[in-house]
Nucleic acid binder design. Structure first.
Lengths: 120, 120
DNA sequence: CAGAATCCTATACGATACTG
DNA sequence: CAGTATCGTATAGGATTCTG
């Protein structure tokens, strides 16, 4: 039945990579995670605020990645038990620590796009 | 023929996102790109050296991402015209600029894994 | 040595509709 | 408001074989 190999590269990857960059990628590597985290850097946000802040993301992706970020202890979800629901997301301590990374990424992005304007 | 919508979110994403983090993700977002770049930070490397340094990557992924990194002007390929072939890869100026980002990622990775050791 | 080609699976991602 | 559920496509990624 076209089994997947026990020792496939895929399994090996997830298992034990001592590379800290690999470790980080596995936590913030999704296409949307850095963007979500970047939005949360400016403070707690409601679900609907995040959706508005990132128009390109679908509800499915937003929820899915928010869940993964919670599982990885980067984001904390706080829900008031009221009607209508009031749910806010904010960075955990580990999430706050990513500020340096995300800012570096953002700065590089700006610098690199400028570089291409010049050479164009 | 199950056409894709003209104004699909997918197209919108690639088009114009003003978010610098999104821009950066689009350039270094692949699962392997940061790892490859991280390896090249320590200096020029031959193809085979990269392969050895990153055992988990397949040849296809390695070549594919190296190509994309070249297209994005982050990595430069230099081939000596000899037999057997001698090809080295090294960081461009823009690639070097990523050092800050990659180091920040690596440091965060180390810190975060320590954090989980404590709480476990 | 450095890579290209082929074929396949797994996952990411998106659109839409529905719910407590 | 803040999600779930379902279904579909697109892309990433992997195994293997072959070549200048």
């Amino acid at each position: 039945m076209t089994q997947i190999k026990e020792n496939s590269t895929r399994n090996f990857n997830k298992a034990t990579s001592p590379c800290p960059v690999t470790y980080a990628i596995n936590k913030i590597g999704g296409h949307w995670k850095p963007i979500i985290l970047y939005q949360l850097m400016s403070g707690p946000k409601r679900y609907s605020e995040l959706k508005r802040a990132i128009p390109a993301v679908t509800e499915k992706m937003l929820i899915q990645h928010l869940k993964q970020l919670q599982d990885d202890n980067l984001v904390i979800r706080k829900a008031e038990n009221v009607v209508p629901p009031f749910v806010t997301y904010f960075l955990s301590e580990a999430g706050e620590d990513l500020t340096i990374v995300l800012n570096a990424m953002a700065e590089w992005g700006i610098r690199d796009s400028k570089r291409h304007l010049k050479s164009a």
